[in-house]
Amino acid sequence: MNASPQQPAIEAIGISKIYGQGQTEVIALNDVSLSVARGEVIALLGPSGAGKSTLLTAMALINPPTSGRIVIDGVLVMEGADAKIDLRTFRRQHLGFVFQKANLIPFLTALENVQVAMEINDMPVRAARQRAMYLLDHLGIADRANNLPDALSGGQQQRVAVARALANQPNLILADEPTAALDSHRGRQVMELFAQVAHESLAGVIVVTHDTRALDVFDRIIEMEDGRLLDG
């Protein structure tokens, strides 16, 4: 959290991603530029194959673009496929992730799943445990803190995943179809949670979604098609 509130949480500038070459070449992203302010919650909409997830994973620093630049909190992170910094450390300190599946570690309890993210970031065990408990409480699942993921419902698992994403107070939260496995009520709850987090902690939030039932919670809606942004 070393960036000034005026800086965008993330700037993706001229991002292209090309898979294969020659006749098998597929352009997944075509010169996409996107900026998300801190405290802003945006939805990324579009049909399957539009490039939403490709753009999200590029911004998540796990799928390097073919060209373009990614600047997070004012730091040039990627230039083309070249990492300008240690990506794993940067992800640990600045980014939070939520996916369609909660991807909780099955041998850790709900509390430990949140706690581990902070311990990995060198937070003392006691402090990490306290904050994990606080986050679970905040998300309404403190009573399931000592349950393994198997014993949690889909919604509860997703809330634990959200708590894990928030654990290190990231500047940017990236969510890929986070409500796909949830009913509409739970889905809306999660979306509202993102909005709340973004506004409270001034984190930028980008949510890839097909779910149009809770679009009112977003500050901005961006549509994608054929690897391009239609708006924004």
Partner: peptide, 16 residues
């Protein structure tokens, strides 16, 4: 392998 990938995604060092 999936859990290890998740640990790496959230920034776990190789030593972990």
């Amino acid at each position: 392998i999936h859990d290890i990938a998740m640990l790496k995604l959230i920034g776990a060092r190789n030593s972990v």
